[in-house]
């Protein structure tokens, strides 16, 4: 379903109801929306613009939102589409992409069966500070960063993620798997650069 179909009016709210739905159903999610926007754009001003665009669009198309349904997922979907369709094109700083990562990862996204493992200790991850975690996440291509944010940070289910991203649930699973493999590689690099022993314990003990 494209965004146009998604935003077709199914309700007819009065002006008063529109404002009430907006305040009650949409505004409580603004912190999550802002953090999602910031993680996508890596820039506070860009995040401001993206959130503002999203909320104005949400109000404009409020008749396509049914009260009592999942407002957060609906808003996230609009934000994600705004980011892809409008924002990414005019972003002042194009996303920095490690094309080797993208090539490797996309080539195998639909074939997430391969038995890849990354030697990384739980202790090494626990020793990393927030900035190092954020840098590792930010180093991922945006599509992979997105699934990790939606799943791990925002707690969306696979079904909700499939709707937000407009992809099948199987692709959510495989993309998440690939994203986590990449994230572990990045975390391993950070842990190694900080002098941690990143190799997993010998399993033969």
């Amino acid at each position: 379903m494209d965004e146009q179909e998604e935003l077709q009016a199914t309700q007819t709210y009065s002006d008063l109801e529109k404002h009430r739905v907006f305040d009650k159903e949409f505004m409580p999610h603004i912190d999550s929306m802002y953090n999602f926007a910031f993680r996508l754009t890596n820039d506070e001003d860009d995040a401001n613009d993206l959130v503002q665009d999203t909320y104005l669009k949400a109000f404009r198309f409020i008749n396509s939102f049914s009260q009592g349904t999942n407002a957060k997922a609906w808003l996230f979907r609009i934000l994600k589409n705004s980011f892809i369709n409008d924002f990414r094109k005019k972003s002042k700083e194009p996303a920095k992409v490690d094309y080797q990562d993208v090539e490797t990862t996309y080539n195998s996204e639909e074939d997430a069966e391969t038995n890849q493992t990354v030697d990384l200790r739980v202790e090494s991850v626990q020793d990393l500070i927030g900035d190092e975690i954020a840098n590792a996440l930010n180093a991922l291509p945006v599509d992979f960063r997105t699934v990790i944010i939606l799943c791990d940070v925002e707690g969306f289910t696979y079904e909700e993620m499939a709707k937000i991203l407009d992809i099948p649930i199987g692709t959510v699973r495989s993309r998440l798997h690939r994203a986590r493999m990449l994230l572990k590689e990045k975390l391993k690099s950070y842990a190694k650069s900080l002098g941690y022993d990143v190799n997993a314990d010998s399993m033969a003990e």
């Binding site: 953090n35 506070e44 200790r121 739980v122 927030g130 975690i133 791990d152």
Partner: peptide, 20 residues
């Protein structure tokens, strides 16, 4: 244990910004 730890780390240690 590793996957659980990474997920918890993402939930707890990423800075949550307050919307201006």
């Amino acid at each position: 244990e590793l996957e659980k730890c990474i997920k918890e780390t993402m939930q707890l240690r990423l800075e949550k910004k307050c919307v201006p």
